[in-house]
Simulated assay, not measured.
Amino acid sequence: MFRRLRRVRFNPNIRTLVSENNIHTQDLIYPLFVTYGENIKNTIESMPDVFQLSLDNILRECETLEALGINAIMLFGIPRIKDSIGSEALSEEGIIPQAVRSIKSKFPHLLICVDLCFCEYTDHGHCGILNPKLQSVDNDLTLEILNQQALILAQSGADLIAPSGMMDGMIESLREVLDSKGFSHIPLMSYSTKFASGYYGPFRDIAQSTPAFGDRRSYQQNPANRREAILESLEDEKQGADILMVKPALAYLDIVRDIRERTLLPLAVYNVSGEYAMLKFAQKAGIIDYERVLLETMVSFKRAGADIVITYHAKEIANLLRRIL
């Protein structure tokens, strides 16, 4: 007798009962972009429904997120001044330390993740200090300023630090400094396998972080390389990362699965701006069943092995799950 697999699909309650992967609001981290000023809500054409927000509007957004059951945010800053070393990121009065302190004072139970990088803060748009001879980022000099930035963010009250620059040795360096300064309890969620991807375009619009010259291929991961991608994450695990990450998500689900099968650490994916924009513009064009495709995409991340999803869709997903459940 052949096996009748359809039996467990016929009744919708049984389908739910045997569902292997599900998306929940507690799996989600919502990115927010903080800028100076008051009552600022700048629209970005390439990122529908995502805004540059002044701190007063960030606080209003956090209130909405808590009401939706979204418990985690990731902060990105839009500085006033950019220079060759991203010095505003090294100031206790920079936009992100200010935002962390304000959010913590009003929403103490909200998990605040902070992106740790310099691309938004440098006038050249690269992720650290440039080596003029190489016309690329000086890895070890950049580690020194990453350590300074991490300490400021930890002192400001950040709950989780997410280094994204793909510098060699950054996790070990950050862990040593944080531990030595009394922040051994702060976890590091490393952008451990971050590809030099074309999917980042809308993010660079909203974060104002497009490189002034060249690209980031000398430090971000080659999209063609599977073995190297696995090695990058396993090396960060060895150095002390608490959570690993694959970025982008949708085009790299094979890498998510590869890493999942080799680590017991929590694994995040970043559902990046280009992936978000494609779905939003497909929705606008009326060519997909948007809500169905959105949930299908989220479940694909979980099925591949992700525990955490960083996504601009978080509010939509929370509202959708409320209707479904």
Rank of each mutant, 00 (worst) to 15 (best):
V269I: 14
V269G: 03
N271E: 15
N271F: 07
V272H: 01
V272Q: 05
S273E: 00
G274T: 00
G274P: 00
G274S: 02
G274K: 01
E275D: 03
A277G: 09
A277F: 03
A277C: 06
A277L: 10
M278V: 13
L279H: 03
K280Y: 00
K280F: 00
K280V: 04
F281E: 09
F281R: 02
F281M: 10
Q283G: 11
Q283A: 11
Q283T: 07
K284I: 03
A285G: 14
A285S: 15
A285D: 14
A285I: 09
G286A: 05
G286E: 12
G286Y: 14
I287E: 11
I287R: 05
I287N: 09
I287F: 10
I288M: 06
I288C: 01
I288W: 06
D289Y: 10
Y290G: 02
E291S: 14
E291K: 13
R292T: 15
R292S: 15
R292D: 15
V293H: 08
L294H: 01
L294M: 14
L295H: 12
L295S: 10
E296Q: 14
T297F: 10
T297K: 05
T297C: 13
M298F: 06
V299D: 12
V299Y: 13
S300M: 11
F301P: 00
K302R: 11
R303P: 05
A304R: 09
A304Q: 11
A304V: 04
G305R: 12
G305V: 08
G305S: 08
G305I: 09
A306D: 11
A306H: 13
D307I: 06
D307W: 09
D307F: 04
I308Y: 12
I308D: 05
I308K: 09
V309A: 08
V309Y: 06
V309E: 07
I310C: 09
I310T: 07
Y312P: 07
H313S: 11
H313K: 10
H313P: 02
K315C: 09
K315V: 05
K315A: 14
E316T: 12
E316H: 14
E316L: 08
I317G: 01
I317E: 00
I317M: 05
A318H: 06
A318Q: 03
